[in-house]
Design a protein around this nucleic acid. Structure first.
Length: 278
DNA sequence: GAGCGAATAT
DNA sequence: AATATTCGCT
């Protein structure tokens, strides 16, 4: 039996994509150069992200870092005090927020604290402070939502017609559906939430989500991962992940895995595409 | 000291 | 309004 174990593991390991094949899902908030210059630590610095991280194919291009901002003491900017420079304000794009919500959902309210969320999100350059600040606001948002949803079944956002519970304020938060158990603290044990976000007939300009759902369904049939936002579903496994999922220690931190490979080990839903592979 | 969360600052 | 920073507390 043990031999079989080590055998499947070896084969599994061989099937890992090579670094060149990888398209990290993490949005790169800072270029490696910049990170180095700014002395920004990398939570799991197993390997620095391949350069492919720098040209996300169809990913909304995040903040561009104009290193050339001339005002930095014109000319001397090169090797001088990188420490004195301030990193640009983080912009929480809907994509980034979605990842945040996903992470919180997977962690459960209990474990959803800034550090853990940050690790699970696994976004380069994202700091605990970034997450903490966002989390603070998100909690306030949830509270407000609880008050408004009252006895209703839990439609987080009204959608068509306008008068959604949230005024023009919560644009960002409204962009990602709120997992039901966020709003009902005393309901069920939310150790893990398995399935998929409801979002029944919500047909806004959220074509992406819908297409993704459709594609996910298709993928479920063929038992194949359809990825996330049109990109291959390859995830970088942070430490918390294998802790939470009770994965073997050998599944190394910082390793890139296909969700199908996770499926081989434990039939947990893929964090990225929500597909359960078994 | 690390990390969380509320308060406060920009 | 959105994000960052500070601050008191465990």
């Amino acid at each position: 039996m043990r031999e079989e174990d080590s055998n499947w593991f070896s084969r599994w390991e061989e099937e890992l994509p090579s670094p060149d094949e990888l398209i990290p899902l993490s949005q790169s908030l800072i270029t490696p150069d910049l990170a180095l210059a700014f002395d920004i630590r990398n939570p799991n610095h197993a390997h620095p992200p391949p350069s492919s991280a720098l040209h996300p194919p169809s990913q909304p291009s995040l903040p561009e870092f104009d290193a050339d901002s001339g005002d930095l003491g014109s000319g001397a900017a090169g090797d001088e005090p990188a420490r004195t420079l301030k990193r640009p304000r983080l912009v929480w794009t809907p994509q980034l927020h979605k990842r945040f919500v996903d992470a919180v959902a997977h962690l459960g309210i209990k474990n959803a604290v800034p550090k853990t969320i940050m690790q699970l999100m696994s976004v380069d350059g994202l700091t605990r402070e970034n997450v903490a600040s966002h989390l603070q606001k998100y909690r306030l948002y949830l509270k407000r939502m609880q008050g408004l949803s009252g006895g209703s079944g839990g439609g987080a956002n009204g959608g068509s017609g306008g008068a959604s519970a949230d005024p023009a304020t919560d644009h960002l938060f409204a962009s990602s559906p709120v997992p039901p158990h966020f709003l009902h603290p005393g309901r069920a044990n939310s150790e893990h939430f398995l399935p998929f976000v409801p979002v029944p007939a919500l047909q806004h300009h959220h074509h992406h989500q819908q297409q993704q759902m459709v594609a996910a369904a298709a993928g479920r049939r063929s038992n194949q991962c359809i990825g996330w936002e049109g990109r291959p579903c390859i995830i970088k496994l942070p430490v918390v992940m294998w802790k939470i999922w009770n994965l073997p220690m050998r599944i190394v931190e910082g390793r890139f895995l296909r969700c199908s490979q996770l499926g081989m080990i434990d039939s947990k839903p893929c964090y990225t595409c929500r597909l359960v592979l078994s």
